[in-house]
């Protein structure tokens, strides 16, 4: 499985041909297929939703909203979890 849907290389945002959006995920720019929900993003990344917390554009995204939240051009997503710490 590809970690995310790559653009097929036509057009730029605003030209009408585009079929991808550019989103920042954990500090890295990624091209995602359009109409991708947060649930689908996690699935494509192979991340179990139950063990992570998502921040979308600096606000915590409630787990109930994963399904219905569609990622848009320019969104900043942080996917965090608990790690060992003191």
């Amino acid at each position: 499985m590809k970690p995310y849907s790559l653009a097929t290389g036509c057009g730029r945002v605003g030209y009408g041909f585009f079929n991808y959006v550019i989103v920042q995920i954990n500090g890295e720019k990624k091209e995602l297929g359009t109409s991708l929900s947060v649930t689908q993003l996690l699935e494509s990344l192979g991340i179990r939703p139950g063990r992570v917390v998502i921040e979308l554009n600096h606000d915590v995204l409630s787990r109930d909203a994963f399904e219905d939240t569609i990622l848009k051009e320019g969104d900043t997503v942080e996917i965090v979890h608990f790690v060992g710490g003191g």
């Binding site: 992570v52 942080e78 965090v80 979890h81 790690v83 710490g85």
Partner: peptide
């Protein structure tokens, strides 16, 4: 105690 960090997406 635990820390909060980014998931390694790769």
């Amino acid at each position: 105690t635990v820390a909060v960090r980014r998931v390694n997406i790769t």
